[in-house]
Design a protein around this nucleic acid. Sequence first.
DNA 1: TTGTTTGTACAGTAAAAACTGTACAATAAA
DNA 2: TTTATTGTACAGTTTTTACTGTACAAACAA
Lengths: 185, 185
Amino acid sequence: MEDHEKIDKARERIIETIAQNIHLYGLVPSAGRQFGTMFFQNEPLTLDDMTEKLGMSKTSMSTSVRALSELKLVERAWKKGVRKDLYKVTDDWHQSFIDLFSIKWQRSVTLHTAAIKKSLAELEELLQNPVLSEELREEVQIDIDKLKYMKDYYNWLERLIDAFEDQRIFDLVPKFENSNENTKN
Amino acid sequence: MEDHEKIDKARERIIETIAQNIHLYGLVPSAGRQFGTMFFQNEPLTLDDMTEKLGMSKTSMSTSVRALSELKLVERAWKKGVRKDLYKVTDDWHQSFIDLFSIKWQRSVTLHTAAIKKSLAELEELLQNPVLSEELREEVQIDIDKLKYMKDYYNWLERLIDAFEDQRIFDLVPKFENSNENTKN
DNA sequence: TTGTTTGTACAGTAAAAACTGTACAATAAA
DNA sequence: TTTATTGTACAGTTTTTACTGTACAAACAA
């Protein structure tokens, strides 16, 4: 095998692994391949570069690079004299993980918290009704307890997101093993 | 509005919110609706119960309840005299979150770690070749550095998963706010 | 101004995933 | 044993999602 083929093979293995795991980011394999391809490129790429390297339409490249950007997996880059948009892989992967975690779960927490609050208020209100049958009153109380449990859980999730966002997670799990320098970078 | 309709409305809001967020678990809305429906039921449900309540085929109920089980969101339940399989929502949601986190990411870490190890070995081997051109040697070295970066990152992710699995995450983010009793439950 | 280039909206098509109904194996009941 | 019930494999259908090609608006160049 020719030497550069060996390099390519080593890269391909990594790229395929990324492609097969990118669903964890809510993306499809081709977006993972795109990310992986950019990762092994030492220069930022244009949409046309990606079209060529991946053999896919420019429209696809445009939409998936946007998806990758929204998850902060890639970012815009600049190079003087180049008019086209340039993109490169974000270089702090720990931060990318945190961003992903935050983006994905924060929305869920917000939506759930709002829904819980509203339903809880309606049920509490229902409980005020003096002519409510004992049977229904009991059913309502059970639901209220369930919603309160959910509320506590989502409150925990919110605080968990905070612990990632403000980097406290690195106090618990330092970036490098057996390292006290977890404030670095 | 009739009283029980009010209860149903409060429940529906929560169920729909779950359905719209369950994609975070890699599941489709209907599985979320199934989960939500089970959550507000005070008795474990059979597949036939679910078929009736959700108006979907039994086959669908079977496959999605399995998906829910694999993520430990629901579990089998037993009730004497009932021959059919019974399922109920897992009651420790913090633990469910940890299980999800663990199941989803551990696989990714394992696959990536193996791929990185293999590619790294191939590239190191390539570097041994004494007649390798200076240009290629440099290219290989850059890739090796990138793979080492990935290796560190996935090592961190592995330790992060461990911190969730062995409950140390609750030291950083207690289940209840301002609580020192984070070892409880 | 007019002519190019670039990124994306949009409509249509291809591919994938969700869902259903049938058929059947496994288990329990008679 | 036979009969009934239950869960799921599998094939087919419907629905959804991914992807492509065209058309065009925005930004730049001349």
